[in-house]
Structures are given as C-alpha cells and as structure tokens.
Write a protein that binds this DNA or RNA. Structure first.
Lengths: 116, 116
DNA sequence: GTTGAATGATACGGTTCCGAAACGAAGACG
DNA sequence: CGTCTTCGTTTCGGAACCGTATCATTCAAC
C-alpha cells in the first residue's frame, strides 16, 4: 500500500488539514512544534533536549522553549534521567497521545474528501 | 486515484515533512499561516481579509498580522480593490508560488520514503 | 450632505519566540 | 580533591503574535 498522491492533491490535503486544525480551535502548532511532537510520539524513546536539537538542526534553547510551551499545553512532559541526572527525558502524555491520534484521524478524514 | 494511507503513515508523513521544513531552514509557518498561504494559492481569487477570516474562523486582526508577516516573507502581497476601495485583495507572488510548488514536491518526496 | 454599515488597520497589555552568550548542575577523568 | 566536558536552562534585547477594543476610510441609502 503505497502513498499515491499528486502534488496538487498533497497541497490540497495540507490545506484542508491546516484549515481544520485552525477552525476546530486546536493548538496552533508551528512546523517546529509539530516536528518535536511527532518525533516524540513516533520515534523510539528516549528523547533528550540534545537529541531533539540535533534531529531538528536547531539550538538547544529552541527545544527548551518549545518544551516549555508544549508542556503548558500538556502535550509532552519532562523528567530527569535518574541514570545520568544531566539529561532530561521528554515523554508522552495522555493528552498528547490523544492529540496525535486525533490528528492522524483528521489527516485520513481530509484525505477521503480529496477529489480524484 | 484515491489517497490510500493509514493513520500511522499519515502521521509519519507529517513528521517527515515538518522535519524537512525545519532542517532545510524554510519558513517556520504555523497552522494558521499555512492555511492562509494554501488558501490563497489553491482557492480561486479574489481573496480578502474578511473572506480569509471567515474561512479560518478567526478575527480580522489575526489575518492582518499574518499578512504583515507573510508579506515580509514575500509569500503574498496586498493590493487595494479599485472597484471597492474598502477591500484589500491578497494576491500570490512569484516567491510564494515557488514556495508552494516546492512544498508540494516535498510532500510527495517524503511520501515516497514511507515504509509500506 | 448626513447617517449608517462595512472593511481593514491600529493600539494595548501580555505571551511566546528568536539567536547568542553565560550559567549551574552533574558526570568523567586525572 | 581539582579540572574538564556535557547537559539543559537562563538571560538579554528585540521581534512576532495573541484577543479585545477602537480607529479611519470608503461606500451605500436616503
């Protein structure tokens, strides 16, 4: 089952999903925040500030600030690594899992609406 | 040609595209900005501040500010409607067209990388 | 002309975010 | 013990964005 999609359809899908997120009053995530959120939820743990900074090609303060905001949104949580107390481990939350799951469903639903 | 995609694949695609936009140093657009940009480029003109505000379900200042930022990014441009000088028409730019076209190609390219 | 409605922009106080630099805490190693 | 490195956070000035309320301009109706 491969992803069969033309560029015009891909753009239309992205538009519909973005519009849906905005009109539904969901969090207005940026590309950076979305990249962090989905990496935490899709890639295998553990996730650290440094690891995420490397993955996104940004500086550590960028990750720290994004985690502040997304922590306030309850989308992710931070915990000290007890094995190496210099590290901070970023973990999923119940709210975040629900958000990501719903988001996946939204993409599928909007994809169904696409004209051939 | 329908869009065949599982939720897990859809989320992975969104992650890869978001990561790609961040690491490539492209503009860090929010859902709102993406919705505005793609609506201007995919929906038939004319586009007004009021029309976009209705489409996104947000207030007019939100659109005005987004247009300020995206205008500075040269992704869209503003012009007075000479027929009704109260209106401002939002139009595409060459840079914006290139950005959107490239973005569509990025989605397709990342979709190709997806595991079955 | 005058009144009223419609459009988009602006002012306000507050939050988030930026990049660069400096910081404290914790581990590694002699 | 001290030194060095690593990790995440904090600080700084400055920019962008928020929601609410108000504004000037324009048009339409009378």
């Amino acid at each position: 089952m491969s992803v069969v999609l033309r560029p015009s359809q891909a753009l239309r899908l992205w538009q519909l999903v973005s519009l849906g997120e905005v009109t539904s009053g969901a969090h207005d995530l940026s590309f950076r925040q979305a990249a962090i959120l989905l990496t935490v939820y899709l890639d295998p743990p553990p996730h650290t500030v440094r690891g995420l900074a490397n993955r996104l090609g940004v500086t550590k303060p960028v990750i720290t600030r994004a985690l502040d905001t997304m922590g306030a949104m309850k989308l992710v949580s931070r915990h000290r690594d007890e094995n190496d107390r210099r590290n901070v481990l970023i973990r999923r939350t119940v709210e975040g899992a629900l958000y990501v799951e719903r988001f996946g469903d939204v993409i599928i639903a909007k994809g169904m609406e696409l004209p051939a």
